[in-house]
């Protein structure tokens, strides 16, 4: 059984098919890269998995259970956490409290506030923001805000983590740190799906890559296979080889 499976997932915005008839699966312990040109439907697919949007038609199956009708907060409590392409943090709330939202409400278990605080603290230690825990989230740099989102997602004890362009706009050093962090997250037993435009990074750490173009899945396979796939090169790598 796959950890997460999508069957014939579609989403239209007016006449535009943002995602059309995409079948996909993710196995436990994998790092799956989701790539494709801008507007290919990658973020829409994340929104469908995390229930920000509902597929129509189509089904999302998590651990053998159809989770399509569930609201977003239940998806999170079942163990699917996400970050956002444009950071969505609680700007006027201190860093630690931001992360506590995840640990207090997102784990699906009843948490006392001291347990939640401990868990939040651990997540902050992991992303390296422990020293800034009392700062207002809005005062952080963009790179720090991205780490904060990651910490908030991790604090909800996910089994599956959706990372939406977590490396965009980071310096090469920061990208290397992020890659290291993602590998560590996987070694803790968390499955990762990541959308990324930073090619070297995604090629290096993904076990498998899914390529979307105009809402359709056009290819799927190991990074090496994808780099050699003529279709992929045509729609994506060929245009942005030095992205």
């Amino acid at each position: 059984m796959h950890l997460l499976e999508g069957e014939g997932v579609c989403k239209n915005f007016g006449g535009l098919a943002a995602v059309s008839e995409v079948d996909f699966y993710v196995d436990e312990g994998e790092i799956v890269g989701l790539i494709g040109p801008n507007g290919a439907g990658k973020t829409t697919l994340f929104n469908l998995i995390s229930a920000a949007l509902k597929p129509k038609p189509g089904k999302i199956i998590y651990k053998g259970r159809d989770i399509t009708p569930l609201p977003a907060y239940k998806i999170c409590r079942m163990g699917i956490a996400r970050t956002f392409q444009t950071v969505k943090i609680f700007a006027n709330v201190p860093v630690l409290r931001n992360v506590m939202v995840g640990s207090l409400f997102g784990t699906g278990k009843h948490m006392s506030s001291s347990e939640a605080q401990k868990k939040a603290q651990e997540a902050l230690d992991f992303v390296g923001l422990a020293s800034l825990k009392d700062t207002l989230a809005g005062d952080l740099t963009l790179a720090q805000q991205k780490r904060l989102e990651l910490a908030r997602a991790l604090a909800s004890d996910p089994e599956l983590l959706l990372l939406d362009e977590i490396m965009a706009g980071l310096t090469p050093t920061e990208v290397a740190e992020a890659m290291e962090a993602i590998t560590q997250i996987r070694s803790r037993g968390v499955t990762v799906i990541m959308i990324e435009h930073v090619m070297q990074a995604i090629m290096k750490i993904s076990d498998r890559i899914i390529v979307l173009d105009y809402g359709k899945k056009i290819a799927e396979g190991t990074p090496a296979e994808m780099a050699a796939n003529p279709k992929v090169i045509e729609v994506y790598l060929g245009e942005e080889c030095d992205a």
Partner: peptide, 12 residues
């Protein structure tokens, strides 16, 4: 602060 983020962090 951010309704959507709250919802995706498990807040009902």
């Amino acid at each position: 602060e951010y309704e959507q983020a709250a919802e995706h962090s498990g807040v009902n």
